[in-house]
Design a protein around this nucleic acid. Structure first.
Lengths: 274, 274
DNA sequence: CGTCCACTTGACTATAATCAAGGAGGGTGG
DNA sequence: CCACCCTCCTTGATTATAGTCAAGTGGACG
């Protein structure tokens, strides 16, 4: 469900086919798949690929670039429901109602492969391995959202942020990029709208992490310096109780005499995002 | 994917077939479907249908009763990720990994129809309308979780609670029960673990709603008395600014001179739960 | 009649939101 | 090339909200 090739659409040559296609796909099936991908489509930064309420016709595989999905309220405020990277599939939430449930906006200049759902169905029926793969992708999306539910529900802001940074790293690593040094493609505001925090809290947390020596931060460039501490935090250990392997730049005097047992619950057993 | 009948498994006679089966299913297809549902299975209250980590073999349609799905952390605290009623499908999150991601626990004595996934696949391939329906169900689950994400992220506790009560009513109504008077099948603790609140907050909120005259409450018996106010609250209007149509039992003196504009964002555009 | 468990209530506190100013880049136009 | 602006981000002070801790109620059930 992704493709490469400059003129013709060829999933077989795509760098990310491992992500959106099943492994045991024979040539004939691959050819059929190529034939239904009507086109690749460029989406400029900040452009909307589709909007909430629009009739659902196609799903989109991210070919390169990055997207966010958002839902708007009547006052105009946004909640970010997901960030999508190359090889991930957009539009699965629209199958239920036949209309898109969210806006999809490019965070940078991007390209997607358009897959008409009406043609995908019959093809899936004929190619079992493709069907299974498709179900797996949908199931993965369910898992991803479950894990977001978990962390939004009961988890401190600093934990959420730690999970978020680790999760991004993991996803970049899965795509062959560095998992410990990457560029945030989204604004602080987007991060806040995703994690359920205000922009000020996001800022303060990132600064705190930097001052603790856990990350390097320069604008949107992030480097994870102390994965162990971040993971401890993500797992629910209180920030003040974490011994930073790299000593804090501003070594805050510990005032607390006795560590109270961590108050909030539910670390995450799955990755924060797909 | 559901069935009725006392001895033999017959989806065609099931009271909830409209929920788990597509409408345009011919007799032959129905027969095929019946044949792969290996059995109905009784699950006693508090019994686990499956546990997180267990190998995934079958999906389960709730035939009667009610379930919760939970994920556990290492300290033993639970997060509730969903409540499931008759006609809803359990186990979609396990397709991705081949292992269940959560525990499924019966909230009361219940019964499920077991559907081996290995047999469902081929059948779906042969019956397009069934495939489409199945995809719709998965998509619906994604939508449901999106809406939970939305409300966990940015919504005040009282709004969440209002949404939750309204959503339960809607779901009971869809099943032919009263949508304004029903029994909570889950404990306050479960509600809290679902809404991301402590048990104390849940209790206080329910009492507040009752004192405002919005609901009648007696143990787990709930009656929605003032749907309008609940909906206003769910939509983001501040509780103090809502004129209760039924005057509050304890008419709290309004102190606030000027209504500040509501601070939090993101009401919900979709139902709270499936 | 007593015990247990789920729930309620109260007092206090921690956490992150809100309100309000400031920087710091990155781009544009003079 | 520099000045200006605009957006995005940071920082500080204060406050509201829901969490925590600690005692009770009140049914259900033996």
């Amino acid at each position: 469900m992704d493709n490469h090739g400059q003129q013709s659409v060829k999933c077989s040559h795509c760098a990310f086919k491992a992500l959106c296609l099943p492994s045991g796909l024979d040539d004939a099936s691959m050819e059929q798949l190529n034939s239904i991908i009507v086109r690749r489509r460029r989406v400029a930064k900040d452009e909307q690929l589709y909007r909430a309420g629009q009739a659902f016709g196609s799903m989109y595989a991210v070919h390169f670039g990055e997207f966010k999905t958002t839902q708007v309220n009547r006052r105009g405020a946004l909640q970010v429901t997901g960030f999508l990277m190359a090889g991930e599939l957009l539009g699965m939430d629209a199958i239920a109602t036949g209309a898109h449930a969210c806006d999809a906006v490019a965070l940078e200049d991007s390209e997607v492969c358009e897959i008409p759902y009406s043609q995908l169905g019959p093809l899936i029926g004929r190619i079992p391995v493709l069907m299974q793969h498709f179900h797996r992708l949908m199931s993965q999306e369910i898992l991803r959202e479950q894990s977001v539910m978990l962390f939004l529900g009961n988890i401190r802001a600093d934990q959420r942020m730690a999970m978020f940074l680790l999760s991004l790293g993991k996803r970049y690593a899965a795509r062959g990029f560095s998992g410990s040094r990457y560029q945030l493609r989204m604004s602080r505001e987007d991060i806040g709208a995703y994690l359920g925090l205000t922009i000020e809290s996001v800022s303060r947390l990132l600064v705190k992490f930097r001052n603790n020596g856990w990350i390097k931060l320069q604008q949107r460039e992030v480097e994870l310096l102390d994965r162990t501490s971040l993971e401890a935090l993500a797992a629910g250990v209180e920030a003040d109780d974490i011994e930073t392997s790299t000593p804090a730049r501003t070594p805050v005097r510990k005032v607390k005499p006795i560590a109270p047992q961590p108050s909030r619950v539910i670390p995450i057993h799955a990755a924060v995002a797909a």
